[in-house]
Design a protein around this nucleic acid. Structure first.
Length: 441
RNA sequence: GUGAGAGUAGCUCAACCGGCUAGAGCACCAGACUGUGGAUCUGGGGGUUGGGGGUUCGAGUCCCCUCUCUCACCCCA
C-alpha cells in the first residue's frame, strides 16, 4: 500500500469547519443585508488578474506580498491582494454602463503572502463597499452609518469608529515644510496606537530625519484627545489658517454634526488625528474601527476617500470613498469574545426515524414542515431513540418529533421541546402550528 | 521575508537529572437501558511525542534541519 499523504493546509490558510463557517456565513449575510439597505449593488471580479493590473498599486510592500506566477499560457498573473484595485480596473472598463454615482459592495477572498498572526491570514475574506463618482462629503458621512449598522447587526456594541482627514494632516505637513515626505511621516504616525509617542518620535527623528520641533508638533496634534467638538476646536486654533487643513476640518465638522443630528449615538465616532492609514491612495476622510474589548486585534473595518481610483486605467476621473469589513479578523475577534454560539443545527427540528418501513411518513412530515417555513431533518438511521435524541441534543436542535407504531396508528406525534423537558401529543393536522409555537416561544 | 518562543491522543495538560510498555481529564464509540437527550457507571478505539536527521547503551527530554502556531519587526482586514 502506498504511504499516506499527510493531510495539512498551507501556512496562513485555514479550513472552516461548520462551527466556524456558520457564524462566518452569518456575518456575510448580515453585511449583505446592511449594504443593500443603503442601495449598494453586488459585484465580483476574478481572483486572478494580469500581474500588471495589480503591481504597484498598494505600495511596494503589497508587491512583495503578491502571489504571482505564470499560467499555462505563459501569462504573468497574480492573485488579488485586495478588492479595491480590481474594482478600479472594473470601473475603468464598465463604469459607462452604470453611470455615476455608483455604489457597489464586493465580498470575496483575497491573498497576501505575509507572515500570519492572530487575526491575520494569507487568505482572508474582505467585504468592501464604496461609492464612486462623487466628491460629496455626504458619501463620506454615509460610510460611518454603514459601519455602525454593520457592527450593530453583527451583535457588537462596544466599538469606536476612529475618523481622521488626510487634508488636516497634509495641512500640518505643509506648515512644517514636509509635504514631500508625507508618506513616510504618515506611516510613522500611523503606528501611534501601537508604539506610543516615543516610538513614533524615534522613527520620525531617525528614519524620516525630522527636527525635534517638527516631530513634536506632529505628535502634539496626534495626541489631541477629547470629544469631537473639542478636537475640532483645538485643531482649528493651531491649523485653521492653513487652507487644506481648514477644508479637512470642515468635512470632519459636517460629519460630526450630521451623524449626531441623524441619530448616531454619541461616542461612536471619535476623531483621532493619529489615524493616517498606510495605503498611499487615501486622500480625504480615513476610517478605522476598533473593538473596545479587543484593541490588539487591529481594525475590523477600515477605509477612506481616494481622489482618483482608476487613473491608472482610464482618463475618466473617478473619486470614491468606502471601507472594508475584515470578516475573518472579525470572526477571530468574536470567537475570542465568546460571541459565536456553540451549537449549530441549521434546521431546528429533528424527526426521529423510528419505524423502519415508515420512512415515507417521516419524510412527508419533514417536507410539510419545510414548506411551512421550518427547517427539519429526518435522522438517517432507525437507531435507538436514545441515540437520536442525543444527536439532536448535541447539535442544538430545538424540537424533536417522535412517531412510533402507537402514534402512527392514532395519527398523532410526540412533540418534544428539547430546551425543557416538555413533551406533548399533537394531532397530525396541527403539527405545524405546535412546532411553530415552540420555535417562536 | 527577519528575529524570539512553542509543538506530547480530537481538546486541555502530565511524564524527576536522558531510563521500565508515554499517562490523566474532557471528547468520541459501545454497553448497562430492545420507546425518551444533557447525568452516572463499565468497557473500548485511538500516539512513529509535528516531520526528518544526529549524539547516546538508551531521546518526549540534548543538538541540527524542516513544517506549523504564537509574538515582535514590516504591513494590514
Amino acid at each position: 500500500m502506498a504511504s499516506l499523504i499527510e493531510p495539512r493546509t498551507l501556512k496562513g490558510f485555514r479550513d472552516y469547519p461548520p462551527d466556524l463557517q456558520l457564524p462566518r456565513e452569518e456575518i456575510l449575510d448580515k453585511a449583505r443585508r446592511v449594504y443593500r439597505s443603503y442601495g449598494y449593488l453586488p459585484m465580483d471580479t476574478p481572483a486572478l488578474e494580469y500581474a500588471e493590473i495589480l503591481l504597484g498599486k498598494g505600495g511596494e510592500e503589497t508587491d512583495k506580498q503578491l502571489y504571482r506566477f505564470r499560467d499555462h499560457g505563459g501569462r504573468d498573473v497574480a492573485l488579488r491582494f485586495d478588492l479595491t484595485v480590481p474594482f478600479a480596473r472594473f470601473a475603468a472598463e464598465h463604469i459607462h454602463r452604470f453611470g455615476t454615482p455608483f455604489k457597489r459592495y464586493h465580498i470575496g477572498p483575497v491573498w497576501r503572502g505575509e507572515n500570519p498572526q492572530r487575526g491575520r491570514y494569507r487568505e482572508f475574506v474582505q467585504c468592501d463597499f464604496d461609492t464612486i463618482g462623487t466628491t460629496s462629503n455626504a458619501a463620506d458621512i454615509e460610510v460611518v452609518f454603514v459601519i455602525y449598522d454593520l457592527l450593530r447587526a453583527l451583535g457588537l456594541e462596544r466599538f469606536h469608529i476612529h475618523v481622521n482627514h488626510r487634508l488636516v494632516l497634509n495641512g500640518l505637513l505643509e506648515e512644517l515644510g514636509l509635504a514631500d515626505r508625507a508618506v513616510s511621516v504618515l506611516r510613522a504616525l500611523d503606528k501611534y496606537g501601537k508604539v506610543g509617542r516615543q516610538g513614533v518620535e524615534q522613527e520620525l527623528r531617525t528614519h524620516v530625519g525630522l527636527e525635534a520641533t517638527q516631530a513634536q508638533r506632529i505628535l502634539d496634534l496626534a495626541e489631541i484627545r477629547g470629544t469631537p467638538a473639542e478636537i475640532l476646536e483645538r485643531v482649528q486654533l493651531t491649523l485653521g489658517n492653513n487652507a487644506k487643513a481648514a477644508q479637512g476640518l470642515a468635512c470632519l465638522r459636517q460629519l460630526y454634526d450630521v451623524t449626531r443630528a441623524a441619530g448616531l449615538p454619541d461616542g461612536v465616532v471619535q476623531f483621532d488625528l493619529a489615524i493616517a492609514r498606510g495605503l498611499d491612495y487615501y486622500t480625504g476622510t480615513v476610517y478605522e474601527t476598533f473593538l473596545t474589548d479587543l484593541p490588539g486585534i487591529g481594525s475590523v473595518c477600515s477605509g477612506g476617500r481616494y481622489d482618483n481610483l482608476a487613473s491608472l486605467y482610464t482618463k475618466q476621473v473617478l473619486p470614491g470613498v468606502g471601507a472594508s469589513l475584515g470578516v475573518d479578523r472579525l470572526l477571530a475577534a468574536m470567537q475570542e469574545l465568546n460571541l459565536v454560539p456553540a451549537s449549530y443545527a441549521t434546521a431546528p427540528v429533528l424527526i426521529v426515524f423510528f419505524v423502519p418501513d415508515k420512512l415515507a411518513v417521516y419524510m412527508e412530515l419533514a417536507t410539510r414542515l419545510r414548506r411551512a417555513g421550518m427547517g427539519a431533518e429526518v435522522y438517517p438511521e432507525a437507531k435507538k431513540l436514545r441515540d437520536q435524541l442525543s444527536y439532536a441534543n448535541k447539535r442544538g436542535h430545538r424540537v424533536a418529533i417522535i412517531g412510533g407504531e402507537e402514534e402512527l396508528a392514532q395519527g398523532v406525534w410526540q412533540v418534544k421541546d428539547l430546551r425543557g423537558q416538555i413533551q406533548q401529543t399533537v394531532a397530525d393536522a396541527e403539527i405545524s402550528d405546535a412546532v411553530r409555537r415552540i420555535l417562536l416561544g
